[in-house]
Design a protein around this nucleic acid. Structure first.
Length: 421
DNA sequence: TCTGGGGTCCTAGGACCC
DNA sequence: TCTGGGGTCCTAGGACCC
């Protein structure tokens, strides 16, 4: 049996742990740069704030309904996530961290000895008591069905108390008939449109399609999903592996045409990618750089281009990466456009301790030592204290984060205080 | 003024090899 | 009339997820 554990309205719940007076009140969390709404409490959902709502368009509604709005605080959410995952790991060694707020757990042979319903209750109690974050638990014979069971747990809290175990055939059929095709895990908007055209409206209808048809139109991914929903486990628990690509991309606060400005941004992105790679002990063989104008300004001339550059040898040296990234930028930058977004993506990642070197070019042996010390200093005295000369040393660039809460759990100076009268 | 960021997997087709 | 068979690797593009 698989369990899918999902934190309820995770970001909003994290904020509420440290501001309990927000319980029962509408809360919304914004994306980087305070751009869009990316998480909402149930109360905010009920007020009709959609996922992805541009913040500036909803400003009035936020004020009208006294919605508590936050900038995203990944230092806090990441740390709270790690705490939740650690508690879940107490229940089984077979744990897959699926996203910042979700985990699959596998229970092999448990159903012979334990009641899965009460196991779910224990997990819920443990996590909520230990972190303050409410969770929902769905348990079923396959991952796709566990996802569905979780949805039921969340949708009918009075009936399920946040835990739903799907064990019988009758339960499975009933659930599949209830689940709309566009809400199925693994069926996105494109497939949903096509399926609805064929009068496939529920997950149940989908499982009745011929294998050939599914294979042809939705590849083997769709076929696996069909089997999973039919009760045949095709997706196994995945070990947490190193990432296969590492990206740093940002929208700018406003549009820029100036090459020097964009060059600084792209250099900083390359350096950030280097840090992330060194953290997971990877080197990249390929670097991609992209640049684009503001797609929302329909009247302005649009331009967007990306380029991939093969490195002479796999590297995670920020110095090398900046060199390649700027070289790529030089090739794709065109004068006369108002740029809004750029990014650097490191691809072709290989383990740093086991990389294929090149015959005729080699890394400056000083780089690795230098990077090691830069990373150590930044860890010790604060991120970005040591910068490269190509970066924005005066820090004129700043992400918009006007409603940021404190880093309660990871920074001593921002720790929560209690007033004892 | 203002609209996020970071990932994964699969397939088709081209280029190449023996 | 008739021109093999079996592979690998890479890339672009499309779909999906949170």
């Amino acid at each position: 049996m698989f369990a899918l554990v999902d934190c309820n309205n995770f970001y909003a719940s994290c904020e509420r742990v440290f501001q309990p007076d927000l319980n029962g009140k509408p809360v919304a969390i914004l994306s980087n740069n305070d751009g869009c709404v990316i998480a909402r409490s149930n109360e905010a959902k009920a007020l009709g704030i959609p996922m992805g709502a541009p913040a500036f368009k909803y400003q009035k509604i936020f004020e009208q309904h006294h919605i508590h709005v936050f900038s995203s605080n990944y230092a806090l959410y990441g740390d709270m996530s790690a705490r939740v995952m650690n508690l879940l790991a107490e229940f089984t060694p077979d744990l897959e961290i699926y996203s910042i707020d979700e985990a699959f757990l596998q229970f092999i042979g448990y159903e012979t000895y334990f009641d899965l319903q009460s196991l779910g209750m224990q997990m819920k109690y443990r996590v909520e008591k230990g972190t303050g974050v409410p969770i929902s638990v769905g348990i079923a014979p396959t991952k796709a069905l566990a996802k569905l069971a979780n949805r039921i747990a969340k949708k009918f809290p009075e009936y399920t108390q946040g835990i739903y175990v799907m064990q019988t055939e009758k339960q499975r059929i009933k659930a599949l008939k209830w689940l709309k095709i566009n809400e199925v895990w693994g069926i996105g908007s494109q497939h949903a449109i096509r399926l609805q055209k064929h009068n496939i409206n529920t997950a149940f209808d989908f499982t009745k399609l011929p294998d050939d048809w599914v294979r042809k139109h939705m590849t083997v991914v769709g076929l696996r999903l069909k089997k999973e929903l039919s009760g045949e486990a095709c997706l196994s628990l995945e070990e947490v592996a190193n990432k296969k690509a590492i990206a740093t991309t940002r929208s700018f606060d406003t549009q820029y045409e100036d090459f020097e400005y964009i060059k600084e941004r792209v250099s900083s992105f390359a350096i950030a990618c280097g840090e992330k790679m060194r953290k997971q002990k990877s080197c990249c063989q390929v670097l991609m750089v992209f640049l684009k104008t503001n797609k929302f300004q329909a009247n302005a001339p649009q331009y967007g281009k990306s380029i991939t550059i093969k490195l002479a040898y796999p590297s995670n040296s920020s110095i090398d990466l900046v060199k390649y990234a700027v070289q790529g930028l030089n090739q794709i930058y065109a004068k006369g456009f108002q740029y809004k977004k750029a990014g650097v993506i490191a691809m072709g990642l290989t383990p740093a301790n086991n990389r294929q070197l090149a015959l005729f070019s080699k890394e400056n042996p000083k780089h690795q030592k230098l990077m090691k010390h830069v990373d150590a200093l930044n860890r010790r005295i604060g991120n970005e204290k040591i910068k490269f000369a190509c970066q924005d040393l005066k820090r004129t660039w700043k992400m918009r984060q006007e409603r940021l809460s404190k880093r309660y759990t990871t920074n001593l100076s921002e720790i929560i205080t209690a007033n004892c009268k």
